[in-house]
């Protein structure tokens, strides 16, 4: 949303000359950002893309390459099937976490913003639900690993309560491991999403609700026919940014499965795969994988950009 007030500022004052000279300071103040961006982000990005076209890996202690191989690294990524498998894992765990996350967030935010409900202790509940978002993901994953271990407290509790007959081995079950990763992601992010959606709901003009009220709409109708459609831009924003975040899923499954993605690499994510190549110094494949991730996130970012831009236009139209 390029700001509308950008151009009004010093444009028509060139006559004095002094202001024009002062605008040099705009460039000077921009310098730290530009320099750091070029050195620590642009150069690494170009280097990564460059590396994706070269064969460059360690065979035992011997380094192979770098030799230019064109798009062979990309071909290898797709041929081995690992990429597709890990992309699938990432998406499954993201969806498993995102669905309860968005349902819970919609429910809570519509309650919090509902004037007729007048819920008390809102500050307390908001503080609690946002808390997991700030916790170090790696420590949180380690905590879950100890909690859900076969000798851990969760098994202890469930056996005591008679829910389990005997301790259940969570980390050898595909569903349980993926489910735990999804559960943790949901727990860490639903508070954040709730607060974002609340802002969206509070932004809907009151007269629309009043009109619905006069027409005798039920709360359910109001939610499905008014709140949800008007919330669409924010929902798309939340979904796409969550998807971009989901593609970066790393800390939780990495710590939970000790980097192995067990059982049988069914909880291995794309970034864990990238991390593995970086550690084994297979720079060709790491580069190719990075480029693919870059392309996917660029497309998704573009969608966010479009949607928030449209939202801005709608606001002006109002």
């Amino acid at each position: 949303m390029p700001n509308k007030d950008l151009n009004v500022q010093f444009t028509n004052r060139g006559r004095s000359g002094k202001i024009d000279k002062l605008n040099i300071w705009g460039y000077i103040f921009l310098l730290p950002f530009t320099l750091v961006f070029i050195v620590f982000q642009l150069i690494p990005l170009v280097n990564t893309i460059y590396n994706s076209f070269f064969e460059n890996y360690m065979a035992g202690l011997k380094q192979v390459g770098p030799n230019f191989v064109g798009l062979a690294n990309f071909g290898e990524l797709f041929k081995s099937g690992d990429l597709v498998k890990y992309f699938g894992n990432t998406m499954i765990m993201w969806i498993l976490g995102f669905i309860p996350q968005i349902v819970l967030s919609l429910l809570l935010s519509s309650w919090f913003t509902n004037p007729s409900l007048r819920l008390r202790f809102q500050r307390f509940f908001k503080t609690v639900i946002y808390l997991p978002n700030l916790i170090m993901a790696s420590a949180f994953a380690m905590l879950f690993f100890t909690m859900f271990d076969i000798t851990g407290p969760v098994n202890g509790l469930f056996v005591k309560l008679g829910i389990f007959k005997e301790p259940f081995s969570f980390f050898t079950s595909i569903g349980a491991t993926r489910g735990l990763v999804a559960f943790m992601n949901c727990l860490m992010w639903f508070g954040n999403t709730t607060i974002l959606l609340m802002a969206g709901m509070l932004g809907i003009p009151v007269d629309i609700f009043e009109a619905a009220d006069v027409d005798g709409a039920t709360p359910t109708q109001v939610f499905w026919k008014i709140t949800l459609p008007l919330l669409r831009p924010i929902l798309v924003y939340v979904m796409v940014t969550s998807l971009i975040g989901g593609l970066q899923m790393f800390d939780v499954p990495q710590i939970l499965t000790n980097g192995k993605g067990d059982p049988m690499r069914t909880s291995m994510t794309l970034i864990m795969y990238l991390n593995k190549h970086l550690y084994s110094k297979n720079y060709g494949l790491a580069g190719a994988l990075s480029v693919l991730l870059l392309i996917i996130t660029a497309i998704l970012s573009f969608i966010v950009f479009k949607v928030t831009g449209e939202e801005e236009l709608n606001k002006k139209a109002r």
Partner: peptide, 17 residues
């Protein structure tokens, strides 16, 4: 436009740098 690009995608070049 670059706001959403994750740091991981340039990690390889970053380590090299």
């Amino acid at each position: 436009a670059i706001m959403m690009i994750p740091t991981q995608v340039s990690a390889l070049g970053f380590v090299n740098l």
